[in-house]
């Protein structure tokens, strides 16, 4: 950082690069519902060694968006996929938590599908964002990316002793309301979880936040409280969402909530400015600081199950 005083422009650029590097160096450790952050380093290697498996979450790729601050959202998605491919330990699967496209157009879905083939992972699980279901209630999305377990598009699967649930909360939205799960999906969720022992770790994911993060901007889900009531008996629950293009976290008992960054563009912090939408003032230099993918490792510890999380970009 010696050039800070010599060349202000270059110094700022260098500073931002350093910030990016620092941003890449955070490891999130969740143990018994409490989140711990530590810089990447020896501790990371140790955490990775203990991991029984890992998976990667990406979100809000918004293929079709081409305005400030990101004129090339395909390129930034591609960078995220390259980071995933560079991981020493191959993730078990990839999770895309919605808003694959900007306008649900067939050519946008085509581009996204083509790009995702560059990821060297066995399978990618998707849930739709509200941008993926415009005009057809998600018919095209589900035809291309659906898991086809339930008519409504929601699904569950097991990986390494962890139960994963993919929920849909961007359809049948009510005027004046937030995201919505709906009665049918709630009945299914209750039944899906009914046979599980309370010590089964759960990972639940959906596009819109499943907690009232900032309802004034639509950042929440109307009937999430009912869904959460089914999760509370479990000892380790992680809820992963997208939608708001920034990392927000909350711990509520044994449930830890996370929202992911976008691979396309950042949005303002809750309540900062007149409304949500792209943070246009972000310069090209700084954009990558705001974009991201996350790598979640499932660690089977000596006495407690924990999920560790590492921000990759």
């Amino acid at each position: 950082m010696q050039d800070v005083h010599d060349n202000p422009t270059e110094g700022r650029r260098q500073f931002l690069k350093c910030m990016a590097w620092a941003g890449a160096g955070t490891l999130w450790l969740m143990k018994s519902g409490v989140l711990h952050a530590q810089p990447l380093g020896d501790g990371t290697a140790a955490a990775a060694k203990d991991a029984s498996f890992s998976f990667v979450q990406i979100s809000d790729s918004h293929i079709g968006f081409h305005k400030a601050p990101n004129m090339d959202v395909a390129a930034t998605l591609r960078q995220s996929l390259a980071l995933i491919n560079a991981q020493a330990n191959r993730p078990a699967f990839l999770l895309h938590t919605g808003d694959l496209t900007h306008l649900s157009r067939p050519d946008e879905f085509d581009t996204l599908a083509g790009l995702m083939q560059e990821a060297h992972v066995g399978h990618t699980f998707y849930v739709p964002g509200e941008h993926d279901v415009i005009g057809d209630n998600g018919a095209e999305f589900f035809r291309r990316f659906g898991e086809r377990q339930q008519a409504g598009g929601w699904y569950s699967f097991d990986q390494g002793g962890v139960h994963f649930v993919g929920l849909i909360n961007v359809l049948n939205l009510r005027a004046g309301g937030l995201g919505s799960l709906g009665a049918d999906q709630l009945v299914w969720l209750k039944n899906d979880l009914a046979g599980l022992s309370s010590d089964t770790p759960l990972v639940v994911f959906a596009h819109m936040p499943l907690w009232p993060l900032y309802p004034a901007w639509g950042w929440g889900t109307d009937d999430s409280a009912e869904a959460l009531s089914y999760l509370r008996r479990f000892g380790s629950v992680s809820v992963l969402n997208g939608h708001i293009h920034q990392i927000q976290q909350k711990v509520e008992g044994t449930i830890t909530f996370y929202t992911a960054r976008s691979t396309a563009y950042p949005q303002p912090a809750p309540g900062v400015g007149p409304g949500p939408g792209p943070l246009q003032s972000v310069t090209a230099d700084a954009l990558h600081r705001y974009l991201g993918i996350r790598d979640v490792r499932h660690v089977r510890g000596a006495d407690a199950l924990a999920v560790t999380e590492e921000v990759l970009s």
């Binding site: 279901v133 009510r174 005027a175 004034a216 639509g218």
Partner: peptide, 12 residues
């Protein structure tokens, strides 16, 4: 006539 944005339903 009440209307809203179907993808941002808090807009009424």
């Amino acid at each position: 006539y009440t209307y809203y944005c179907s993808i941002h339903p808090m807009m009424v």
